[in-house]
Design a protein around this nucleic acid. Structure first.
Length: 597
DNA sequence: TTGACCACGTA
DNA sequence: CGTACGTGGTCAAC
């Protein structure tokens, strides 16, 4: 078969695990693949990486790289083709097992992919697969991933060959979709490598501060179940003492809370925070309840159990990372890595001798809109540090109005004061607005879209299985989903290209990315390399944006600074006092913040 | 035990 | 007629 021009040597890493848990690899450059045990495989990858810097084809980074990186922590592959990530990009959805990716790469219908063995007696269907890796009907045999068939070195080498073949077909499909898509696969694959590293390395925490913050919200660490219950009752009592006669209210039951509030004259349709915010003055129980909710969040979700379960002995918070979610393609993480409440952020702190380089992209979504729509006038506005200023000038409105109008156009909110300014936007930036309207229309019709970088977005089945046209509300929701997905998804692609570039260019400084948060990066770096890392992060943005946008005249900006704690402001970041005042001060500031506006 | 709903944290 | 994600609580259905 004629292979596409990959631009660099091609390597492959696949693995299988026998039923007794022993892992074995097939590793090598294309045409020279050998079956090896883990330590030897890691050594081979290291040597080949150094000598040839190949693009490594893997069925998935998690399967192929995670165990190798445990064996050899210094291993850092730079170029990867992750078949699962390529499949998600090219064909949509999240499921991307080898059999499914293989089928899509070969143009075989997804509903004909043989089901993987389930472990019960139907496993005997494997007998229908015949003796070979590829079945008579063109599908991969079903019992590969479980390790049931990959029992010999020859079979493992054949498995590597299948990965190379699959990647070759994917690459051709990607190239056929346009010049941006192969680079997107490269970038998404790099993000998948980064996810393995993020999961392994974790986010550095200051354990003493975590303990203190949890203590301030949830009380001291309980030594027994009884103490835990007592602590919980004390928290509840702070609310219930405001409602004599209703002390038996279950604060965790919204219906009971609603009834309790009604009894003291607070009449609300539901007990959501933004509804209760306006009722603080009606009765003191409202204030107490909102404070309780904040403490309860930390006590339950980010309390001692969370600390003990997810923060290691090395004071690192670890979770599972994915390179793309099911919809727009953003990275996801669990165990609180992506939704850590702001009051806990002072606990995210550099290890001794290190600092955090914190960088976030400014106004990324409107800038992305300028790229993906090709609107030259809107692109002109991105030359400003504050994009809303030139837009406001062009529209003849206040900056605040311009901002709301732009956000309304992108996210679909039509209520409020944005109406007039929206008309101005459509006159001033018709190309950008038409791009959003087109995405909305495709969503309403249940059609398929691709992001700027080529990710397939299917709208037909989002939010349920109801057919298009049957439910106008559902159609509109699909439209909003689609309009948002082309922006959010493209922003995610740029972000990952940036993160991958930062990972590659700052590694020689000893820098490691420890958190990715949609438009924000935290890089952990030895103190003496802080300034070099800042420069590297900023240069990486310029570089990644130019490559991602293929030279579009759109400017992207990053607010980049050096901090010891995530909570510190980036500019003029002086280390705040680290005494006991830190914690109580932050809690106070947080609660007073939420009172007005 | 599972799934729906609520509620709320992040971007 | 903002969207996306993850988490933990309760409740109803199984």
């Amino acid at each position: 078969m004629d292979t596409p021009d990959w631009g660099s040597p091609l390597g492959v890493i696949v693995s299988s695990r026998s039923p007794d848990g022993i892992r074995r690899y097939a590793v090598g450059l294309a045409g020279e693949v050998a079956a090896l045990p883990p330590a030897a495989a890691a050594a081979a990858v290291s040597a080949l990486e150094q000598e040839h810097a190949p693009r490594w084809v893997v069925w998935s980074c998690e399967e192929a790289l995670a165990p190798l990186l445990e064996v050899t922590p210094g291993l850092r592959p730079t170029r990867v083709w992750d078949i699962a990530e390529a499949h998600r990009l090219l064909h949509g959805g999240w499921a991307a097992e080898p059999g499914r990716a293989w089928a899509a790469a070969h143009g075989l219908a997804p509903d004909t992919v043989p089901a993987a063995p389930t472990g019960d007696l139907f496993d005997l269907v494997g007998a229908d697969d015949g003796p070979d890796l590829v079945r008579g009907d063109g599908h991969l045999r079903a019992d590969t991933v479980t390790g049931a068939w990959l029992t010999t070195d020859d079979r493992l080498v054949a498995w590597a060959g299948a990965a190379l073949a699959c990647a070759g077909l994917q690459r051709r499909q990607a190239a056929a979709l346009g010049s941006r898509v192969v680079p997107t696969v490269h970038s998404e694959s790099a993000a998948a490598v980064l996810c393995v590293e993020l999961a392994r390395d974790g986010l550095p925490l200051d354990r003493a501060v975590v303990e203190e913050l949890i203590g301030a919200a949830a009380g001291p660490r309980p030594a027994s179940v009884d103490e835990e219950l007592a602590s919980r009752r004390r928290r509840d009592a702070d609310v219930l003492r405001h409602v004599p006669g209703r002390e038996s209210t279950d604060l965790r039951n919204p219906a009971q809370v609603k009834a309790m509030l009604a009894a003291v004259g607070v009449d609300v349709p539901n007990t959501r925070k933004w509804v209760l915010e306006d009722q603080r003055r009606v009765h003191p129980v409202v204030d107490a309840l909102l404070d309780w909710r904040k403490r309860e969040r930390i006590a339950t979700t980010y309390g001692y159990r969370w600390l003990d379960t997810h923060v290691g002995a090395d004071d690192r918070l670890r979770g599972h990372w994915t390179a793309c979610d099911g919809a727009g393609g953003r990275m996801t993480a669990d165990n609180g890595l992506h939704n850590l409440p702001a009051p806990l952020r002072p606990a995210v702190a550099a290890a001794p001798g290190h600092v955090l380089v914190r960088a976030d992209l400014g106004q990324i979504e409107p800038r992305v809109l300028a790229v993906v729509s090709g609107d030259r006038s809107f692109a002109e506005a991105t030359r400003a540090d504050d994009l809303y200023a030139p837009v406001a000038a062009r529209l003849g409105v206040d900056r605040g109005v311009a901002k709301i109008a732009v956000l309304a156009a992108m996210y679909g909110q039509r209520s409020g004061a944005a109406g007039e300014a929206l008309k101005g936007l459509e006159r001033a930036y018709p190309v950008a607005m038409a791009h959003l309207d087109r995405a909305y229309a495709v969503g309403v019709a249940g059609g398929d879209l691709r992001t700027f970088g080529g990710r397939l977005i299917r709208t037909g089945r989002v939010l349920g299985a109801e057919p298009v046209g049957a439910n106008p509300q559902l159609d509109a929701a699909r439209g909003r989903f689609a309009r948002n997905a082309v922006i959010q998804g493209a922003a995610a692609e740029l972000f990952k290209a940036w993160a991958a570039t930062v990972r590659a260019t700052t590694a020689p400084l000893g820098a490691r990315i420890v958190l990715c948060l949609h438009d924000e990066l935290l890089v952990h770096v030895p103190e003496e390399q802080a300034e070099a890392a800042v420069a590297g992060v900023n240069a990486a943005l310029t570089d990644a944006a130019r490559r991602w946008s293929q030279g579009a005249p759109v400017r992207f900006v990053s607010d980049t600074g050096v901090v010891r704690r995530w909570s510190e402001a980036k500019e003029g970041a002086q280390a705040s006092d680290e005494g006991p005042g830190l914690v109580s001060g932050l809690l106070r500031r947080n609660s007073s913040n939420s009172a007005p506006s």
